[in-house]
C-alpha cells in the first residue's frame, strides 16, 4: 500500500528557534500523497504551508517525525543525496518565478538539464517539448524582462517540468498573476498532471487554485485542520 505513495509523512513536527525559545510551525502532521495527485495545502498566512513544502522539497528538514519523499527520508539525507533528489525528481515553482534575467527563455528551461549530463540533442528536444506544453515556443529567444508575468510563470513551469520530475512543488504560483493568466497556467498544470502523471503539491490560499485541486489539505496553526477529497464525478 505504502509503495504507491509518492510522499509519506508521519508524526512530523517543525520547530524554529525564536529568541530563547522555539516556535512550532508544524505539529503532528500525518499525511500521504499518492502518485499523480493534484493536491493543495490550504490555509491562512503563517499556517505552515511553505514550511511543509520546503521539507517535502528537501530544502529543509523535520524537527521530529518522518517525511518520506519517493522513498527518501528527508531528515536523513546527506546534502549530496538531497541535491540529487532535487536534481532528478523534483520541480519547483515559486511565486516570484525566479528566472535568470540575462538568460533566454530557452536557456532558463534548459538549465535543469545541464546538471543531468544529457546530450545537446536530447536537451533540445526536451526543452522544445516543455515550451510546447506551456505554449511559448515562439519566445525561445526572449529574455524574462521582455515577458509578461503570466509568460514568466509559464517559463517557470516549463523549467520545473522539463526533466519530467515525479513531483512538482508549487508555492503560491498564481499570487502575482491576474485571473486569466492564473487559469491559463492552472489548466496547463492540470494537463501535465494528467498526461505525465506528475504529482503536484500546491501551497495556496487562492480560490482559483483551490477550484482546480482534487484534494484539499487545510492547515491551521501548523496542524491539519481537515482534508477534503473531490471525487471526479461529483
Amino acid at each position: 500500500m505504502e509503495s504507491s505513495n509518492t510522499i509519506i509523512i508521519k508524526g512530523l513536527y517543525k520547530r524554529f528557534p525564536v529568541g530563547k525559545g522555539e516556535f512550532t510551525a508544524l505539529s503532528d502532521i500525518n499525511l500521504n500523497f499518492a502518485q499523480g495527485e493534484f493536491t493543495g495545502l490550504i490555509g491562512p498566512s503563517g499556517s505552515g504551508k511553505t514550511t511543509l513544502l520546503n521539507i517535502l522539497g528537501s530544502l529543509d528538514v523535520p524537527s521530529e517525525g518522518e517525511a518520506l519523499v519517493l522513498g527518501n527520508s528527508i531528515g536523513k539525507l546527506t546534502t549530496h543525496e538531497a541535491a540529487n533528489l532535487r536534481k532528478v525528481s523534483l520541480g519547483f515553482i515559486f511565486q516570484s518565478y525566479n528566472l535568470l534575467a540575462v538568460h533566454t527563455v530557452y536557456e532558463n528551461v534548459e538549465f535543469p538539464l545541464l546538471l543531468l549530463k544529457l546530450s545537446a540533442t536530447e536537451r533540445h528536444k526536451m526543452v522544445m517539448d516543455a515550451l510546447e506544453w506551456v505554449g511559448l515556443t515562439d519566445k525561445i529567444k526572449s529574455k524574462p524582462p521582455q515577458l509578461s508575468g503570466g509568460q514568466c510563470q509559464r517559463v517557470a513551469i516549463a523549467r520545473a517540468m522539463v526533466k519530467k520530475p515525479s513531483l512538482v512543488l508549487a508555492d503560491e504560483p498564481t499570487a502575482n498573476l491576474d485571473a486569466a493568466n492564473s487559469h491559463h497556467i492552472l489548466k496547463t498544470m492540470e494537463t501535465l498532471n494528467r498526461e505525465l502523471k506528475t504529482t503536484f503539491v500546491f501551497a495556496t490560499h487562492d480560490d482559483k487554485v483551490i477550484s482546480y485541486l482534487r484534494r484539499k489539505v487545510y492547515l491551521l496553526d501548523g496542524r491539519i485542520d481537515k482534508v477534503e477529497v473531490i471525487h471526479p464525478n461529483s
Partner: peptide, 14 residues
C-alpha cells in the same frame, strides 16, 4: 542569492 537559490532548487550542490 536569487540565482543561488534557483540553482540549489534544481539540484546543484552548494
Amino acid at each position: 542569492y536569487g540565482e543561488v537559490g534557483i540553482r540549489l532548487a534544481i539540484g546543484e550542490e552548494k
